Computed example of a mutant assay.
Amino acid sequence: MNENYQRIYLDTIEKLKNGQRPQIKLTPELLAELKQEWARALANGTDKVLQNETLKKILCILDNSQTTTSELNELFFKTLKEIKDHEMIVYALSASQKHVIADGLKNGTMISMEYFEILKNLLMSKNPEVKEWTLRTIETMGPLSLRLKKEVLAAKPGLMKIFNQHQKASSQLIDYLEKEWKRMLG
């Protein structure tokens, strides 16, 4: 049975509009289709509009899935390294919280050093929303967030944060992380 991710995406959007939680089950068939379409979208980097539309649908499905999987980690890493569209980076970070981080923590598997390197690079983004979502992603790592302590502290916004909601949120996230680190380290 071939699941059609386009149909699942439209169903997901409809449920979200109606205030429902989609809770998508990632069947082996759906996973295979998502993997294939995602790889195709990344390979077809010349048509950015088509690429972004495909990625948006796939990442929406993954963000609203009931189950987690590390099967797509390499595609997350490739996407976060190659894609320059800020909105797509935010979508990828959001879905990666569930599939890279939560799945790794749940199954006791080590989160790839490649992922930490990607997050370090994204912390230096000039885009305030990308920086905020990178910090949100790091915050979900619990004690593993300590690996990025130096980079997180270096990313703290200056006084201009009062004029930008994303910079303000970033500042609050960094303050929260500092308190958590003090608590963790006793």
Rank of each mutant, 00 (worst) to 15 (best):
A43K: 15
T79E: 09
L80N: 07
L144R: 13
N164V: 04
R136P: 04
I61V: 13
L93V: 02
P157I: 06
D175Y: 10
W181P: 07
M88V: 15
R40M: 07
W133Q: 14
D175S: 12
T140M: 07
E114H: 10
Y91E: 10
P157G: 07
V152Y: 01
L30P: 06
D85F: 11
R7W: 00
K149L: 15
E74H: 03
Q66P: 00
T12V: 06
L31C: 09
I118G: 00
S94R: 14
N18T: 09
E37G: 12
R7S: 11
M113W: 02
M113H: 02
N164E: 11
Q167T: 06
L185Q: 13
D103I: 13
A154K: 15
L10K: 14
S171L: 14
Q97H: 01
D47V: 08
E82S: 14
H99T: 07
I101E: 01
A102N: 06
M110G: 01
V100C: 05
L26W: 12
K25H: 12
L26M: 04
Q36A: 12
T134N: 01
L144K: 07
M88R: 09
N4M: 02
Q66I: 08
S145N: 11
T67E: 15
E29L: 06
H86F: 13
G104F: 05
H86D: 13
L185Y: 05
M88W: 03
Y9N: 11
T140Y: 10
D63H: 07
N44M: 11
E37C: 05
K81F: 01
T67A: 09
K17N: 10
G142W: 04
K150I: 10
V130A: 09
L75P: 03
I61R: 03
N127F: 09
N164P: 04
Q23T: 06
D47L: 11
A32K: 15
N127Y: 11
K120I: 01
L30S: 02
A95E: 11
M124N: 12
N64D: 05
G19T: 02
Y115W: 05
G142M: 07
A169H: 15
S70P: 08
E33V: 13
